[in-house]
Design a protein around this nucleic acid. Structure first.
Lengths: 179, 179
DNA sequence: TATTGTTATACTCTATAACTATA
DNA sequence: TATAGTTATAGAGTATAACAATA
């Protein structure tokens, strides 16, 4: 398993998070389909449809969690840490699909925010066990509610049935390459 | 329309593109579901399902087009430019959902790659009309074939019917915020 | 006064490589 | 010799702000 990379889309501007207080709720930056523009082959690609949706959802996610400065990767990290005790930094990196050095920075940030703590790992003095702080637990609970609301909004145009269908179809996409 | 942002996920490492020649076809970096890991609420979120799919697809896309150094944003730009004559830089930025300064850099790169040219815009001496060079046209045709193949691979586990359903469901996601 | 393209600057996220302290 | 975490460095992509030329 060569520590080969990721492909994680990245970088959200601090804009929403930076402004912090202003709950202006965004005037939707990205128009997935500008009128009078010919998108050519893009309109026929599944990958592009997903890309478009992802950009919009990412925007809405960040706006929804701006008050906590929690981005999708941070949220994922918090959830994963909370549900998997004794997780090591390397494990987290692997699960998130990022380099170990990236996980260090991510955990550093969460630690500075007082959400995560590095505990000595039992039986291996090189490693840490990651745990949520009490603040981390409380924040995660609140953030989870916001995320659930956000997700409901995102999918609000779809019936329960359709949502289930969508998830199941998505899960079947992009099978692993033969290698 | 405040020139507000984007939300465009970003940054792909040069890895695949940098190595250029080596068509090792990737050993798939991101595992969307690591065994024995509890993903908690993440597994129930539509947004997370899309995020996972997007990461995988992005990886496969970049690997597929590595020989041309063409990333998704670059590909989108080429297609948009080819299908919409007399497009100005500002238009491109708007369509792509990025800042004008970002469009400048993007076009700079495509121009250095000899794929795009800045022509004087008729009737406005401040602006440029973007056009593909002959090389740009040829490269785009080749890249399109690769993208179509990539997209087919990505969706290969789904029937035609299912692919259509997926696209239609995706298009209905993330309705604009009330603002 | 507004807009087009540009430049300068900064920020976020990611990666690779080298280093340390363990194992 | 290999692994966990770290640090240093670099690269891609984005944003905002200010500027010149033109509208």
């Amino acid at each position: 398993m060569s520590s080969d990379s990721s492909g994680t889309p990245a970088g959200m501007p601090p804009r929403a998070a930076g402004t912090a207080a202003t709950p202006k709720a965004a005037d939707s930056g990205f128009d997935p389909h500008v009128p009078d523009i010919d998108y050519g082959i893009l309109d026929s690609l599944i990958g592009h449809a997903i890309r478009r949706a992802q950009i919009r959802i990412y925007e809405d996610f960040v706006a929804s969690l701006a008050q906590w400065q929690i981005t999708p990767p941070r949220f994922s990290a918090l959830v994963i840490i909370s549900r998997n005790p004794k997780l090591k930094l390397t494990d987290l990196a692997h699960i998130l699909g990022i380099a170990r050095s990236g996980a260090v920075l991510l955990v550093d940030a969460l630690q500075e925010m007082n959400l995560v703590e590095r505990r000595p790992a039992p039986g291996d003095r090189r490693a840490y066990s990651l745990v949520l702080t009490p603040t981390g637990k409380r924040t995660l609970e609140a953030a989870k509610q916001a995320v659930v609301a956000h997700d409901a909004h995102v999918a609000s145009a779809l019936s329960e049935q359709e949502q289930a269908t969508l998830k199941s179809l998505l899960a079947r996409l992009a099978p692993p390459r033969p290698a």
